[in-house]
């Protein structure tokens, strides 16, 4: 994994440091980072290390060394290769490289880093589904254009979707736009969570168009449910 940080030489050190301090101040950080034996077990079990120029060990060591320039480079380039399988939790030092990467990604998204926007290109409809319907992988997402590498089987499902969904015995599954039937009240409570925790602000940073669409969907439902958005937005 490259340790060349020259591409980001123009970014002020203070900006890089601010992002690192934010990663470090996450309450999970202390329990995900204890040090590194350099044993390489995390790399040996890492699926991403087999197919990408990627190393959970290098990321953990960089954080442990507090190499601010390299951390910034990793937040911009490497963290999106991680599979988030947490095989690296096998670490004998009890680090969680995958957990550290979750925090680094979160900070990258919160600050709208270019890498986060690029990594999430084509991902907007998935964020829309999970945030708007409360279920992520809806049946109507099975379209041949979205999954060409899954073969003609996907067309078979999308052609028959309505009937195949009706042919499911559990009554909660007779849906095509969401994975199961989620009640209106449940949805308004979910929307409230997104607002009260600042997640909507994160969406705005990475995809302004998606943010507008989601706000349209949510505002009316929240008002109907009697939740006051102004009073309940994250400080």
């Amino acid at each position: 994994m490259s340790t060349d940080t020259s591409k980001y030489a123009d970014v002020p050190y203070e900006d890089k440091l601010r992002l690192f301090e934010e990663v470090k101040s996450d309450e999970r950080y202390q329990r995900y980072m204890y040090g590194c034996y350099e044993c390489g077990i995390c790399v040996a079990v890492c699926p991403s290390a087999r197919f990408y120029d990627f190393s959970p060990r290098v990321i953990t060591q960089t954080l442990a060394r507090e190499d601010v320039d390299l951390i910034y480079k990793q937040m911009n380039e490497d963290v999106w290769d991680c599979s988030q399988c947490f095989s690296c939790n096998k670490c004998p030092r009890q680090n969680s490289p995958g957990g550290l990467i979750t925090i680094m990604r979160e900070v990258a998204v919160k600050h709208g880093l270019k890498s986060a926007k690029e990594a999430l290109e084509g991902y907007g409809r998935i964020i829309y589904k999970i945030m708007a319907t409360g279920t992520q992988v809806a049946p109507d997402m099975l379209q041949p254009s979205a999954f060409p590498d899954w073969g003609p089987h996907v067309k078979g499902i999308s052609d028959n979707l309505e009937w195949w969904r009706r042919a499911l015995p559990p009554e909660t599954l007779h849906t095509t736009e969401s994975s199961w039937q989620v009640s209106e009240k449940t949805l308004s409570e979910l929307y409230l969570i997104w607002h009260m925790t600042g997640v909507m602000d994160m969406i705005k940073e990475v995809d302004e168009g998606l943010h507008m669409i989601l706000m349209d969907v949510m505002e009316e439902k929240l008002e109907e449910a009697g939740f006051d958005l102004d009073a309940n937005t994250k400080d």
């Binding site: 994975s179 600042g198 969406i203």
Partner: peptide, 22 residues
């Protein structure tokens, strides 16, 4: 139940467009 949402963790591990509180 219908009073159930997804845990939303697939999206969290995929996109990080969420946070610990949410």
């Amino acid at each position: 139940p219908k009073d159930q949402t997804s845990c939303t963790a697939w999206n969290y591990y995929a996109s990080a467009t969420s946070n610990a509180a949410a």
